[in-house]
Design a protein around this nucleic acid. Structure first.
Lengths: 232, 232
DNA sequence: CACAATATCTATCAATTGATAGAATTTCAA
DNA sequence: TTGAAATTCTATCAATTGATAGATATTGTG
């Protein structure tokens, strides 16, 4: 699946304007493009789509307003490009593990290994969310888009949320020794992943009162307890 | 100095303008005020501060633009008033239970009762978030404000988030038979509450694939398992 | 009723914002 | 080096938005 060509904007083949005539460009142009994309990710993540202005983005990218139009057509195109980049990076980061798990789920699997795999998957996500300050803005980007669905919702939903929840739910079922039915597993998958994403906005609050030390370990402990309790 | 006793906006004594000369008003005026506040809560909840326009709110409230200024000074004042209302309503809804729990925590408490109280507290929150479609927009309001802190952050943080997390953390500690230290309890509190708030934006997704039936029961089951596993 | 306080509403303003036109500059292959 | 393609940038536009002025209408009390 996926693995789509160069993957600019998988969906919505219509919206693009002329933006950058055609074919390839110069080296420096590609650099500018990256700079804009990076600045946009950060600002969209911090402020959401509406509150972010194209001028802010241009300034942070050390370029000017028309450059955004030149490379991305318009504000919404830039927004979608950010979503595409998030999806691509995430797939690069956990896609392999996810595929392995999916393959193993096709065969039968005992509860113990399901628990291990579930822990691997979720701790991977936790690290993705907590480790790099670069990914924090991305996580916020997703959070904004989920709180009020906009132009990037379909991309994020169909390529991150839905497959992620589905996979997690299947592992939860397998890890529970058949004690949890499919619908219950979905609910729990949403809750488990939600408990992780909530750390994004909750982190400053934790830090404010409890410090940042060992946060990751504490989170993984909590996850582990939750997973073990599935089969109980 | 505004000085209006009636707790319009607890914090920020500065920002208010004249907004509604002084003293009391007519009955019809108060009705309009409520209509505006309600419409604003809904639209701010759906779209966040920046994306919501005062014209939308005026229209949904079946009034006109200057009415917002008349009653709330400006857009930000209206936003803060929404936050105040959310806090007040929530306190009315779970404040009593929270006080009881706080009082009991002062004395010693065995793990079993702590577990029960924790379940009571969280299921109360779950119901608050899931039950009334009216509260959905409020929950989204909070979520928006947490994702990108704005004018209402301090109100919500100091009156909802912080005390809520603190109380939950204390109960978690008590329910764990001393197995969980304070910082770990704090992290788990954020995660538990986060798993509930994530249902707000996750709900449509759950519904899309698993239906809405019995959602509350499934959520409470998951909560119960989590709580029981604390002492294990 | 009268009349002051309160409330509503039309018209309009200034600032911000996304977008574009079109000139000027840079890149790089031949 | 040269020149066409690619990129950058200044100036400007039209639409949206929050806010206000000021005229008009409504309320309720004496």
């Amino acid at each position: 699946m996926s693995s789509d060509m160069t993957s600019k904007s998988a969906l919505s083949p219509s919206s693009a304007r002329q933006m950058r005539a055609s074919a390839q460009g110069y080296k420096k142009g590609e650099e500018t493009r990256r700079r804009i994309l990076s600045a946009a990710s950060e600002i969209f993540g911090e402020r959401g789509f509406a509150s972010a202005t194209t001028r802010m983005i241009a300034q942070k990218a050390e370029t000017n307003l028309p450059a955004l139009t030149y490379y991305f057509g318009n504000k919404e195109g830039l927004y979608r490009a950010c979503a595409d980049e998030i999806v691509a990076d995430y797939h690069k980061s956990v896609g392999q593990l996810a595929e392995q798990i999916a393959a193993m789920l096709a065969t039968n699997m005992d509860a113990k290994t399901a628990q291990t795999l579930l822990f691997d998957l979720l701790s991977n996500l936790a690290r993705f969310l907590l480790t790099s300050p670069d990914t924090e803005s991305r996580a916020l980007f997703i959070q904004h888009e989920m709180a009020s669905p906009g132009a990037a919702f379909e991309i994020l939903y169909s390529q991150l949320w839905n497959p992620g929840i589905a996979l997690t739910a299947m592992l939860i079922r397998a890890a529970s020794n058949g004690k949890i039915d499919e619908r219950a597993a979905w609910v729990r998958a949403v809750m488990m992943i939600g408990s992780l994403t909530s750390l994004i906005s909750g982190r400053p609050i934790i830090t404010r009162t409890a410090g940042d030390h060992d946060l990751e370990i504490l989170v993984l402990d909590a996850l582990n307890d939750q997973i073990l309790s599935l089969a109980r």
